[in-house]
Write a protein that binds this DNA or RNA. Structure first.
Length: 113
DNA sequence: CTTATGACCCTGA
DNA sequence: GTCAGGGCCATAA
């Protein structure tokens, strides 16, 4: 490790990746859903699926449609008894997305950039 | 359907 | 520097 290698401590690659991911998530129109890996890939960051989830959780932007981001299985990544699950499900239903057996028909509602 | 395994990424202690 | 954990993913059994 170098000692004088970071002129700006706040400068992180991850920080910029966050911006891109947030930006991409904002591009998801209402009535559509996308998986974490899909968002990551659409952001030009394949393999960042996990980072996306961690990022959305941390982000507090009100204009960020985090509820439109689910896992690749078409299911919400929270526990069914969790409040977050209910909230997300309700918001998606409000946008016209229907759930079948706690699952979304990705085939139909999948966001395609 | 569940469980296991390997992969790839970042954060915080 | 190591280690555990997280809104993950794909494949295999």
């Amino acid at each position: 490790m170098r000692s004088n290698d970071s002129p700006t401590p706040k400068n992180s690659k991850a920080q910029e990746h966050r911006e891109i991911i947030i930006f991409t998530v904002k591009q998801i129109p209402a009535g559509k859903v996308a998986s974490h890996g899909q968002v990551a890939k659409a952001s030009g960051l394949p393999g960042y699926a996990r980072f996306v989830g961690n990022c959305l959780k941390q982000s507090t932007a009100s204009d960020l449609p985090w509820h439109r981001v689910i896992n690749a299985q078409g299911k919400i990544s929270f526990a069914e008894n969790s409040e977050k699950y209910k909230t997300q499900q309700q918001r998606l239903r409000d946008e016209g997305i229907e759930f079948i057996n706690n699952r979304v028909a990705m085939k139909k509602y999948r966001w395609q950039p």
